[in-house]
Amino acid sequence: MRGFMMKDLAMIKSNFKLLAILIIVYAVMGVTDEMDISFILPFMSVMVMISSFSYDEFNKWESYASTFPNGRKNSVRAKYLITILLILLMAVITTVLSLFIAHSKTSSLAYENILLTTLGNIFATIIVLSLMYPIIYKLGIEKARIAIFVTIFGIAIIGGILINYVDLAKFLNVLSPLENYWVFIIIGLGIVFIYTSYRLSLHFLLKKEF
């Protein structure tokens, strides 16, 4: 799998400059009290990885990689692992920057808030990745763009409808016994999402004929 990770890393290295610029923008906006864009960096990691799918598809990489020992399996594993590592790296950078900025502004640090925001960002990004990757493996990146748009749009609409018809306060009240366990629940759900997504992607790629 390491060989596949090396290939993916080599492909996205040209995007590292873009991520570096975003880190600077994030730092500047944090200092100047602009809106919170801490989600941008982890989210961009997924976007960067998605661009690697386009190159793969253009050069029929998956087909070529399936001639390697355990090629299909390792190819999917590497994509997930690199993406998760990149998301975590960006989340760590964002958190460190946020803590540093907060520390320079006030003596009382809201550590808990910052860490919870980071966790929320990682979770949200993992949901996006977990939805997108199986669709890409099933349909190919070109057709997947439309499917991803429809999926995200659909989720937004369903979410909107639910908010209108569900009494949110009541709902949160029902969940209140879980209040002390949210961190673990979110981490657990994240792992379940990503593992399910990985199994689905692997299933699609193993079945695929080129």
Partner: peptide, 28 residues
């Protein structure tokens, strides 16, 4: 133990021979 050359299927074209080497040494 199989080496292949397939029509129009290869490493993505933004990579270099060095990248291929760095990848392949962990594949085979």
């Amino acid at each position: 133990d199989i080496g292949v050359v397939l029509d129009d299927m290869f490493y993505p074209e933004i990579l270099t021979p060095n990248d291929i080497n760095n990848s392949m040494k962990y594949i085979y």
